[in-house]
Design a protein around this nucleic acid. Structure first.
Ligand SMILES: NC(=O)c1ccc[n+]([C@@H]2O[C@H](COP(=O)([O-])OP(=O)(O)OC[C@H]3O[C@@H](n4cnc5c(N)ncnc54)[C@H](O)[C@@H]3O)[C@@H](O)[C@H]2O)c1
Ligand SMILES: NC(=O)c1ccc[n+]([C@@H]2O[C@H](COP(=O)([O-])OP(=O)(O)OC[C@H]3O[C@@H](n4cnc5c(N)ncnc54)[C@H](O)[C@@H]3O)[C@@H](O)[C@H]2O)c1
Lengths: 210, 210
DNA sequence: TTTGCGTTGATATAAATTTCACAATACTCA
DNA sequence: TGAGTATTGTGAAATTTATATCAACGCAAA
């Protein structure tokens, strides 16, 4: 665990998150140790890739028993989690917003969705999927109160630009955009976009050109 | 447009899909031409990257007017779409399944969700989000009838393995897995996985280590 | 003990992807 | 016309990411 951690490849970060997801399952099944080739198989990777990722985070296993799952999970947590936890808000409680919120609920210790927002009076000022849903006009005060640096955007496409801009004005530093509207943000803001159509089209391309 | 197309980098394929998404928007706004730096800005890429991608697919713009959007969209379609269209099924019509289905509906000409499946009698044998939802026991006959090579998996985690296996037995060649259960598939099957938690954790990591 | 097997860790190599740098071109305007 | 400006296309370099290879190690069985 060096200061080098900030230089971990982005791909490795993503895989660390996925390793942990798998390792949680393995713990649940009663496993205590795991070999690189087992983890690789479950991730559809090569064992070498796995070992190299773990080398990068400075974790050592044993030749006979492989890696100690509990320790590995703890180390991954030390790297990708924030020690004091991070709070996330979600804006837009339509179909997708609710699906994401109820899925995420309670899945991680150090990362939690603390508030939802919408502009539809039918949805505001009540608990939805276990999270209090506020009117969007209150977003600034809630962000300040909760100290949430991260927002998930699932509003209607027409509202995406305006709402995103507002969120940045309120101090959001990381934005996970699921609307079909591509966003542009300043350099100091982290933006991740995901569109299922991109995944589907890639898959369709691969299937057709096989 | 060479035979080289099968060798297009995977990353380029993903970006082509996203370029097209943006270009559709631009057309809607009345634009007819676009420069690499405009497209780059909207994609959060460098202009060189854009030009490189377009070079790879053999598209040429003009120095004065940039790229002709209509032509570019058509060429991207020629590359990533299947000329005769591809049919997709979705299995698991819970929150996420419905959100995806209603989102995707009608968005693309050559790619459409033609059938949904569930095992909950409350959801089967009716139209949900515009798509007929069948009982999972009919999946084989519908796949054969519709000739669908691609499936989206959004069932409950406990059912994921079993349902995935069944789908492959029915001849599915590409699988887009949204369940929280990582899948392992034979080499000749294309698998894409996506988990919002991975995106969120990566974002949280970047935000915290800034 | 000794041999053989399977694993990790690490260095070297390769492949994929992005960026740099700039020639070539087309347009504008004085 | 000709200088100035802005753009594309692309070879080469740089960077990022993945794979190959193998020494070293630990264990088990002979
Ligand atoms: N990326 C993907 O794969 C994917 C998948 C499905 C949907 N989507 C997109 O996600 C978004 C949500 O999809 P959905 O199916 O939940 O749609 P939806 O219409 O069910 O939900 C949108 C919600 O946003 C709220 N909203 C609208 N304007 C708002 C504003 N100014 N402030 C606060 N809230 C506002 C609406 O009241 C509604 O509750 C859409 O933009 C859709 O295109 C993306
Ligand atoms: N990848 C992500 O980002 C993400 C986000 C949200 C949810 N999820 C996952 O997606 C899946 C669906 O989430 P959801 O919120 O829609 O859950 P849900 O419980 O609302 O929906 C699951 C659906 O699957 C159906 N189902 C269960 N067993 C089945 C079987 N054997 N055959 C056919 N259908 C069956 C259920 O009847 C239900 O309709 C879950 O596995 C969840 O963990 C993933």
């Amino acid at each position: 665990m060096k200061e080098k951690l900030s230089e971990l490849p982005g791909k490795t970060i993503e895989r660390l998150s996925q390793y942990r997801r798998i390792l949680y399952n393995s713990i649940r099944e009663g496993k205590t140790n795991i070999y690189s080739h087992e983890l690789a198989r479950m991730m559809n990777l090569t064992p070498v890739q796995v070992r190299r990722d773990l080398m990068l985070i400075g974790y050592s296993g044993s030749q006979s028993k492989g890696y100690v799952i509990k320790d590995l999970v703890a180390l991954i947590g030390k790297i990708i989690d924030s020690s004091d936890g991070q709070k996330v808000i979600i804006v837009g409680m339509g179909n997708l917003g609710r699906a994401i919120t109820s899925y995420f609920s309670g899945k991680r210790d150090k990362l939690s969705i603390v508030a939802a927002f919408d502009n539809d009076p039918q949805k505001t000022d009540r608990i939805i999927a276990g999270i209090p849903c506020h009117h969007i006009k209150d977003v600034q005060s809630v962000i300040e109160e909760e100290q949430s640096p991260i927002a998930i955007l699932t509003v209607s496409p027409e509202a995406a630009h305006e709402v995103a801009k507002h969120l940045l004005d309120c101090g959001i530093k990381g934005l996970l955009n699921y609307t079909s509207v591509p966003l542009t943000v300043p350099d100091d803001i982290y933006l991740e976009e995901y569109d299922i159509i991109t995944s589907l089209e890639k898959l369709a391309y691969l299937v057709k050109s096989k």
